[in-house]
């Protein structure tokens, strides 16, 4: 199909293919977790699979492919990797703190409402907070 792919040596093709498969599978698993987890604070953890090793594996594959294709070390994909690995914790922590603040602002209301009628669907497990109702 493409000439740059056909000229790759076999070991490089296998290595790049394995890295691409690992990265995309981890990203897909993170997105499945994003869709399937039940509370927001669980969902916050799921996409970090794609952010950490999904990005790292795909960037390693891209660096290896372009280095072998152009015949010189190509490392400018590291900019994306470093940028994503620095900014992803910042965004997720900001989002988590925003959700915590919003839940606390609503949690007072929930606690007051819980005292008056004993809630029918009780919170399962050992979590004392009303995280199950907040979703």
């Amino acid at each position: 199909m493409n000439s740059h792919i056909e000229t790759l040596p076999l070991w490089a093709a296998i290595l790049i293919a394995v890295l691409l498969v690992i990265g995309s599978t981890l990203t897909l698993l993170g997105n499945i977790g994003l869709l399937r987890f039940r509370t927001f604070y669980e969902r916050l953890h799921a996409p970090t699979l794609g952010v950490s090793w999904g990005t790292a594996a795909i960037i390693l594959a891209s660096m290896l492919m372009f280095s072998l294709h152009l015949g010189r070390p190509v490392i400018h994909e590291l900019i994306v990797g470093v940028f994503v690995m620095i900014t992803a914790p910042v965004t997720l922590m900001l989002l988590g703190r925003a959700a915590l603040r919003r839940d606390r602002a609503r949690g007072l209301d929930l606690n007051v409402r819980r005292i008056t009628p004993p809630d029918s669907k009780a919170v399962d497990g050992d979590e004392p907070g009303p995280t199950d109702e907040i979703r």
Partner: peptide, 12 residues
């Protein structure tokens, strides 16, 4: 190597 790469790229 082209077959391997094409399968992996399509899967990804």
């Amino acid at each position: 190597s082209a077959i391997i790469m094409n399968i992996a790229l399509t899967y990804a």
